[in-house]
Amino acid sequence: MPRTEIRITGYGGQGVILTGYIFGRAAAIHADLHSTMTQSFGPEARGSACSSALVVDDGIIAYPYLNDTDVLIALSREGYEKYKVELKTGGTLIYDSDMVQPQDTGDVRMYGVPAARIAEELGNRIVQNIVVVGFTTAVTDLVDVEAVKKSVKGSVPSALVDMNLEAFRKGYEFYQK
């Protein structure tokens, strides 16, 4: 896999950092890849447009920051507005279709999922980001699906594993439908 750069953005509390962590851990621990995650800190991390950034590569990663975003995952409108310019031509936009109404400029691939609504149907809005993780795993070839599932299991509180795996499945299947 060549160097791939992913930006995840949303507002504080949506699980933006956890989303980056799950993919990063899936790549580095459960698949044979390298990954480096960086994130926004301070009031920004708790506020309106927080973000995490992930670099995945099959070789060693020296430069840990994003040059040309391959995949932008937007869980909120504000995050989308802030980071859309980063997304490279031919890149992939993944968004929560109830939160973000992206303009189709024709030069990026766009995939929407009503993640918050699916999460609410599952009984807990908190798993919105995990629905997106499942959806992203299906849309992209980022990391092997089993590796991501293992990472989800290992990254959420043990009492909530089943609900999170269900959210993952719903997201994954939403794309396949």
Binding site: G24, M37, T38, I61
Partner: peptide, 9 residues
């Protein structure tokens, strides 16, 4: 700060 806040294997 970069190394402190960077997550890797």
């Amino acid at each position: 700060e970069c190394i402190g806040h960077m997550t890797e294997k």
